[in-house]
Design a protein around this nucleic acid. Sequence first.
DNA 1: AGACAATAGTTGATATGTCAAGCAAACTCG
DNA 2: CGAGTTTGCTTGACATATCAACTATTGTCT
Lengths: 166, 166
Amino acid sequence: MPHGSILRELRQTKPFPSNREEAFVGILRTADMLRWRISEVLEPEGITLAQFNVLRILRGARETGLPTLEIGARLVEQAPGITRLIDRLELAGLVRRERPRADRRQVLCHIEKKGLALLSRLDTTVPQASEVLFAGLASAEIDQLITSLDAIRSVCAARCTSLRKQ
Amino acid sequence: MPHGSILRELRQTKPFPSNREEAFVGILRTADMLRWRISEVLEPEGITLAQFNVLRILRGARETGLPTLEIGARLVEQAPGITRLIDRLELAGLVRRERPRADRRQVLCHIEKKGLALLSRLDTTVPQASEVLFAGLASAEIDQLITSLDAIRSVCAARCTSLRKQ
DNA sequence: AGACAATAGTTGATATGTCAAGCAAACTCG
DNA sequence: CGAGTTTGCTTGACATATCAACTATTGTCT
């Protein structure tokens, strides 16, 4: 069966002018669905995907903590509104902020016990969800997928970096 | 070279627990970059990616026009705020709305000459951009990518449809 | 030391997305 | 026919994203 399921999904009849464009749309559409599915899992805990990612990043730096903008740089998806995102996490008691003496410009963020507890509740359900979603693909196929996406991002990054940092 | 570029990009050290999770993150991250790159191309025309997609959908139905919610259903990414999105397009003179006599509940949307002109200005630059971004991949690799993404979405859709329509 | 720039983050204005409730036209069925 | 339901869309309230200024601290250069 040739691919073409996107055409059906979008109820279009014209074929894509090139497979690059089809892949382009396919990536956006798949990401949207994945984001949607994972949000379903996160909803009971009352956090968004971006907040979840921030918490996981902070868990990875539990002892030292991380400055605000460093968190932003590590986020999967860009988040210029990182300050206010962390405002909400702090308000919810999941995160703590502190201004270190060494460099008083920066603000170190630490995950709180409450945040760790929340993450540990998700540690089984989130991987479970991605297991299910990728069930239709063989392991080698997933590896190939990862490699292809990496290649796209490396081209993209080469043309982006100069602009991203201004 | 084994994949692992995401780890570098996110400045993480721990490997992903499974390649499914790595693929998951890879898709979200790649989609974010693509969205960012394409927005750059659209910016000079003053429209967003969602608005661009709506215009293209309406161009595909030039003669008949389309009811508002039908446009929403065809969008690449979900857009519940379709009404206000079209409000802005109408305000910009790119789209026209009309309430047909046959079924006066629905609102038919048509693309205006100004909208068609805008799209035609993008008809070369947008495909060019995706050409560049996928330059690192062989055509067969792109086909494989499309197939894999289709497979993910088909699993996802099977579990989503029931919820999407409530 | 003092001027200037760079860094780290915050804030405000504005745009956009999201959710639930609401309204009116059309359908359904006793 | 007419009460109740469904469909198609809009609206309001609120959350979040985006962009451009702005503050405070530190680093750099003469």
